[in-house]
């Protein structure tokens, strides 16, 4: 464990808590993409099945349980409890265009052709693109609430911090995992224009407005 990975996990944790608070406090999931949340739940389910097979640490287990539990809780809130506030008209990104290539890539490009390893690889590739429906929805609605912007900033920062973690681990432990690194870079690059808008607008108190 290093400071970058811990900061990344905390940023990820913060993002999920911000999202849950936003939905719970405002009793609305307006502006949030349910499709992205479904992809995240699928990502963590596929990646954390090893919860039952191999023990890494208490921290690792607690965080995995938390990420799985909160991803399903978010889906429950969006598709059941506050279903009436779910903006399905703007949440229209074709997720099959993500799932198919990611599945094929996981079958072709992996460290080992085993069930668990392919699930892990699938989850790494899927996580890289899982935010696309959300970013697409923000571009379609042309704006996002500030709280949603903070959620996206924390979520985007998590994998950016992981990149620093991988650099750190490469130089200190000579450890690297190209699949995780390349997917993590792609994932972070997808946030770039959002990060730009976040720093130039949201942090100056303006609403996140995208040029429609």
């Amino acid at each position: 464990m290093n400071v970058f990975r811990l900061a990344g996990d905390m940023s990820h944790l913060l993002a999920i808590i911000i999202l849950l608070l936003k939905i719970w406090k405002t009793r609305s999931c307006a502006g949030i993409s349910g499709r992205s949340q479904l992809l995240f739940a699928l990502t963590y389910t596929a990646r954390y099945l090893d919860l039952v097979t191999n023990w890494v640490s208490l921290y690792n287990t607690v965080m995995k349980v938390f990420f799985i539990a909160t991803s399903y809780a978010t889906i429950y809130l969006m598709y059941l409890k506050f279903k009436a506030t779910y903006d399905s008209n703007h949440d229209t990104f074709r997720v099959e265009f993500l799932l198919l290539p990611v599945t094929i890539l996981a079958l072709v490009l992996n460290h080992e052709f085993s069930f668990m390893e392919i699930l892990w690889t699938f989850s790494i590739y899927l996580e890289a693109v899982a935010i696309l429906p959300q970013l697409f929805m923000v571009s379609k609605t042309g704006e996002a609430e500030s709280i949603t912007s903070h959620y996206l900033f924390a979520l985007g920062s998590y994998r950016l911090l992981y990149i620093f973690n991988w650099i750190w681990r490469y130089y200190t432990e000579e450890y690297y995992d190209l699949i995780a690194i390349i997917a993590g870079v792609v994932q972070t690059v997808l946030y770039c224009d959002f990060f730009y808008l976040y720093f130039t607008k949201v942090l100056k108190g303006k609403k996140l407005q995208l040029p429609a």
């Binding site: 690792n60 995995k64 390893e117 973690n165 690297y176 995992d177 190209l178 995780a180």
Partner: peptide, 10 residues
């Protein structure tokens, strides 16, 4: 060494 298949990261 390249990553073993036991993934210790979240």
């Amino acid at each position: 060494p390249e990553a073993s298949n036991s993934h210790d990261e979240l």
